[in-house]
Design a protein around this nucleic acid. Structure first.
Lengths: 274, 274
DNA sequence: CAAAATACGTAACATACGATACAGCGCTCC
DNA sequence: GGAGCGCTGTATCGTATGTTACGTATTTTG
């Protein structure tokens, strides 16, 4: 049963030629407003010609463009009148996707439920402290999160370093770390010995450790000043780092806000350098 | 301060003559969809003539009818993009954290709403196809997502490569890519020219491109066989990649499931190697 | 009550929009 | 390698749409 036009499109998008598929993709991406504009606007937005748009709507089964627009409008009208239908897409329930999504959303809510405003503010303040350097490192699967965070933090403040490469390389960087510095570690199961040893040494040197881990807590929690425990369970063969990712983004935003005055200047400078 | 057109109308409805007032009332009653239809339809719905409708929109301060319609569409677009503002939850507001979380959760729901089960299955099948090689690459901030995905995919199947380092390095890898290969690209605003050029060349070589981008669609969408448009808007100085991250995790899970038999053997082998 | 001003609709107009014919191009399949 | 097919863009056409001018109706004001 096909109820919405969006479903109709995603149902047939596979059988469409390249140009019409572009049309379909842009419509889905800006659903449904692009479809309410003129053919010319739609076509330029999709990067194709007007006839391709018309062929696209014809393939969907509409006699002409106005009829297609009317259908979109009717759908919109129904949505606007009953907001409940928006939140739940009946077609997508039942499949293998929504359990994954639902679990992820639950993980995030749970993660943030155990995370107070104050904790986050403290960590953000720690990260925004410009006295010392900031180092970030992660495990096998979480190192990309460290990179992601480092890429953003490095823009709003100086002395942000992501520790990459072989173990020997970042172990040597310990010599640069001291009491005023912050080390952000991502470590979820299965916890990596190398990271634990690294954290221990850093801790002995007085480094301020911020740990992102799962709800079972990496052994590094012993040495950490701040611990963020994210939920990771999802119906998949893998654990999910999504909740930690969102916490990281939240902190990035908070740090940026705290460094607003200096950060803005820095961002402008960087822009001009590009 | 007048923000929405509806407010503008209710502000001036008192000073309007009878005919225009009827126009105003019917617009409010079916807000805003009647305003997106033609002048003729609007006029018959309101029981007045077309010129009255035009005088009505002129009184609201618009130069012409299309301009009025554009304003309505922009307003609608803003509403549809951030459902949070519509179903504003007063209990959860207050701190700086929950708006961020709420927006992120909304982004994910919206992203998946525009993503059909079938599309994801198609993409998963593409990624699980073991005939060719899989390459992953990302932009300035999204490259960690590419790494994350690569780290997982590389475990369940061979020939998975993350393209890192300087532009020249991965440009040279193009020589290894052909029709049976898949290139996964992450590119959100501001889109990187180097990636676009890279994608174009890969496309010319017949490489199957899977694009992760934002709702405004990277220009790479032109060359992509599959496009995933994630919502990125959050109350922060940065765009959020969290929705794309979750889609990536979902795909990782789906691919792993598809390769279950072979993948499981592979995973055991890898375990024994550690 | 009269006269003026405002409001409204009918009808003609011009523009811009959607539709279509056609040619070029790439792709696939002999 | 060649023939056929399908896809896509350019250019043209007809028309539906928004716009405007003008005459009539209605209200307002002295």
């Amino acid at each position: 049963m096909i109820s919405s036009i969006a479903e109709l499109i995603s149902d047939r998008i596979g059988t469409m030629p390249a140009g019409e598929r572009r049309a379909a993709q842009t419509l889905i991406a800006n659903y449904p407003l692009i479809g309410l504009k003129t053919v010319a606007e739609f076509s330029t937005a999709a990067g194709v010609s007007s006839p391709t748009i018309l062929r696209f709507v014809a393939r969907l089964g509409f006699q002409n463009y106005p009829e297609f627009q009317s259908a979109l409008q009717d759908e919109l009208a129904a949505q606007l009148q009953s907001p409940a239908t928006r939140t739940l897409n009946p077609a997508s329930s039942g499949g293998a996707v929504s359990p994954m999504l639902e679990a992820t959303l639950d993980n995030m809510r749970e993660t943030f439920r155990h995370l107070s405003e104050r904790q986050l503010a403290d960590i953000a303040a720690t990260l925004a402290h410009r006295r010392g350097k900031t180092f970030l490192i992660g495990g096998r699967f979480t190192d990309p999160l460290a990179r992601y965070m480092a890429a953003h933090l490095a823009i709003v403040q100086p002395d942000v370093h992501h520790l990459a490469g072989q173990e020997g390389i970042w172990r040597d960087r310990l010599i640069d770390m001291g009491k005023r510095d912050v080390l952000v570690i991502f470590d979820i199961r299965r916890y990596q010995d190398s990271l634990v040893r690294f954290a221990e040494t850093a801790h002995q040197r007085g480094v301020h450790i911020v740990l992102f881990t799962d709800q079972w807590l990496s052994p590094i929690a012993r040495f950490a000043r701040h611990v963020i425990a994210g939920r990771t369970a999802v119906p998949s063969a893998w654990d999910s780092s999504a909740a930690l990712f969102v916490v990281a983004e939240t902190l990035i935003g908070a740090v940026t806000r705290q460094l607003e005055t200096d950060g803005a200047k820095r961002i402008r400078e960087l822009e001009s350098l590009r």
